[in-house]
């Protein structure tokens, strides 16, 4: 593995999940360019379609950051996300990819600094397992209905 390769990582963040100001500020302003932050109202909003699109587009790793169970801002949104995305994650093996590429971080209110740790861990994992096998991508023209 050459050292110059940098994994591309997409972070889906529930917009309510980071309680500490410093963490949110870090996410908003200090993310390195190879990490893309996408904020959603709730992890429950993350359609498997989004994750699939990220993989099709060539993301090497995906981090889903949400709230602890029972502490979801939308009562049970993160439980729905768990069911749906966990299912999707198992589907990765079927495609011949490693499940570790999708990582979930259910962060409690008081867990200051955990998101940085999770991102670093994910990047570490991705570096050991290497770049993702590119799927045949389908170009989606802007504005077309999916």
């Amino acid at each position: 593995m050459n050292d110059t390769w940098t994994p591309r990582i997409v972070v889906f963040q529930c917009q309510y999940s980071l309680y500490c100001e410093a963490d949110q500020k870090w996410m908003d302003t200090q993310l390195p360019p190879h990490i893309k932050l996408i904020k959603v109202p709730c992890t429950g909003r993350i359609s498997p379609l989004f994750v699939l699109n990220a993989i099709q587009g060539g993301a090497d790793g995906i981090l889903v950051s949400g709230c602890q169970p029972e502490k979801c801002h939308f009562k049970e949104g993160n439980l729905g996300a768990r069911r749906q995305l966990d299912e999707f994650r198992r589907f990765l093996t079927y495609l011949g990819m490693e499940e570790e590429r999708i990582r979930f971080a259910w962060i409690d209110l008081s867990e200051r600094g955990r998101i940085q740790q999770e991102l670093a861990d994910l990047e570490e994992t991705i570096r050991t397992i290497g770049p993702i096998r590119r799927l045949v991508t389908r170009a989606i023209p802007v504005g077309e209905k999916l």
Binding site: Y19, C20, L109, S110, E111, R112, G113
Partner: peptide, 15 residues
């Protein structure tokens, strides 16, 4: 409502 701790400096943040 909450106190959080910086895991490195052990400083505390009062919310």
């Amino acid at each position: 409502s909450l106190i959080t701790e910086d895991p490195e400096t052990r400083n505390l943040f009062v919310h």
